[in-house]
């Protein structure tokens, strides 16, 4: 092989030559970098949710006590969850619009298990405030659902974003009916 080289082999001291020594240097740096990254990772990853935080229990709620037109707020994973017993009028209004025209298109049906019971994470999808509209007398916004006072997001009677800076609809948490009266969130 050596005699196929047109030039004579360069001396090891030639700085331009990429020789075995350079390979060793680069390999050493690379190993050093991998080692440093391996040590730094635990220091960074400790900031992610700890095991006990992840293991937070689910929340069970008796929804039979909520009268039509009323709403309650419960806590799940440190966040408020809105549970609203909707009136017939609210349900009709939620279905009256063509959902494809919405910012975050979704049918009302896809957001409920029983049309009269709407369960939502009560956290504005803009920057995380709790929207108003749960208590009687609170502003409910232009679409009669919820209104976020922080930067003015309006949600409709299905919790879908209609106006304002929020990009998506209020989130529907995972929940199951344990019986007709009780749901478990989470």
């Amino acid at each position: 092989m050596a005699n196929t080289n047109s030039k004579p082999a360069k001396s090891a001291t030639d700085p331009r030559e990429v020789g075995r020594r350079d390979f060793i240097v680069v390999a050493t740096y690379a190993m050093g970098a991998v080692g440093a990254a391996a040590v730094v990772w635990p220091l960074i990853d400790q900031m992610n949710p700890a095991a006990d935080t992840l293991a937070l229990a689910s929340t069970e709620v008796d929804v039979s006590k909520i009268a039509e037109g009323q709403a309650i707020t419960v806590t799940w994973r440190g966040k408020p969850v809105f549970i609203r017993h909707r009136t017939a009028d609210e349900i009709t209004r939620a279905n009256a619009i063509d959902s494809s025209e919405l910012r975050d298109p979704q049918e009302d049906e896809a957001r409920v298990q029983k049309p009269e019971l709407l369960v939502l994470v009560g956290v504005c999808t803009h920057l995380g405030c709790v929207p108003l509209g749960q208590k009687t007398g609170e502003v409910k916004g232009e679409y009669d659902g919820w209104f976020c006072p922080c930067h003015g997001s309006h949600y409709d009677t299905s919790g879908r974003i209609r106006k304002g800076p929020a990009p998506t609809n209020l989130e529907v948490p995972p929940y199951t009916f344990l019986s007709d009266a009780v749901i478990r969130i989470g």
Partner: peptide
């Protein structure tokens, strides 16, 4: 929550900053 505006990784970044699912 400003960081949740970042596409794709935004939510994970916010969880990372919080060390949980809300400011706690």
């Amino acid at each position: 929550n400003l960081f949740s505006a970042i596409p794709l990784v935004g939510e994970s970044i916010v969880t990372f900053l919080w060390g949980g699912f809300s400011v706690d």
